[in-house]
C-alpha cells in the first residue's frame, strides 16, 4: 500500500510497474487519474492551488484504503494526491488498485475516489480571468459516495 501527498507530478506507468514488479498473483490493475481542467462552472481556469490539512489528509486516505481492503480482496493500492499550484492539464490525483480479478479492482478504484472527494481534507482555489475563487463542494459528489452504503 502506498499513500503519498506531494507537490511533484507522478507517472501512471511507473506506479503500475512498481505495483506489479516481482509478483505474478495480480490479475487486474484498475487506475484513475484526475486532471486539472481549463474550464469550471462556466469560467476559464488558468491555474489552481490545492491546499490540505497535513496529518489529517494522510489519516483520511489511509482509512479510505483500509475500508476498501475490508470490502474487497485487494492485493495492493496506490493513492497519490498533489498539492500546490497546478496548471490545466496537470495530473492531480492517482488511484491504482491491484486484485486477482477485474471486478474488485474496478469497484475499489471508484470507491476510493468517491470517498476521497468527500472525506479527504483537500481544497481547490481556482484562478480565473474574473479573479481567484474557492471551489464549492458538489452535491453530486456526496451522492456518489452515498450510493456505496445502499448495498
Amino acid at each position: 500500500m502506498k499513500i503519498v501527498v506531494q507537490s511533484e507530478s507522478f507517472d501512471l506507468g511507473a506506479e503500475v510497474d512498481a505495483m506489479r514488479a516481482g509478483r505474478t498473483d495480480i490479475g487486474a490493475i484498475a487506475s484513475f487519474v484526475g486532471l486539472a481542467r481549463d474550464m469550471n462552472d462556466g469560467s476559464g481556469v488558468t491555474a489552481m492551488t490545492l491546499e490540505h490539512y497535513p496529518g489529517m489528509t494522510e489519516k483520511a486516505l489511509s482509512k479510505l484504503v483500509d475500508d476498501a481492503n475490508a470490502r474487497w480482496a485487494l492485493l495492493d493500492v496506490t493513492v497519490i494526491h498533489r498539492i500546490g499550484r497546478l496548471l490545466p492539464g496537470d495530473p492531480i490525483v492517482l488511484v491504482a488498485v491491484a486484485s486477482a480479478h477485474r471486478g474488485e479492482a474496478f469497484a475499489a478504484c471508484e470507491f476510493i475516489m468517491d470517498f476521497l472527494k468527500t472525506q479527504a481534507p483537500f481544497w481547490k482555489k481556482e484562478e480565473t480571468p474574473e479573479g481567484a475563487r474557492w471551489v464549492e463542494a458538489r452535491e453530486s459528489d456526496d451522492a456518489a459516495a452515498a450510493r456505496w452504503s445502499r448495498d
Binding site: Q119, P121, V135
Partner: peptide
C-alpha cells in the same frame, strides 16, 4: 470529523474548514 455535541479535551487539536473539494 465530529458532530457538534462531541466532547473536547484539554490540548485537543480542533480544525474548522469548508466541505472538501480535492480529487
Amino acid at each position: 470529523v465530529v458532530a457538534p455535541d462531541a466532547p473536547l479535551a484539554d490540548g485537543a487539536e480542533v480544525a474548522i474548514f469548508p466541505p472538501v473539494t480535492g480529487g
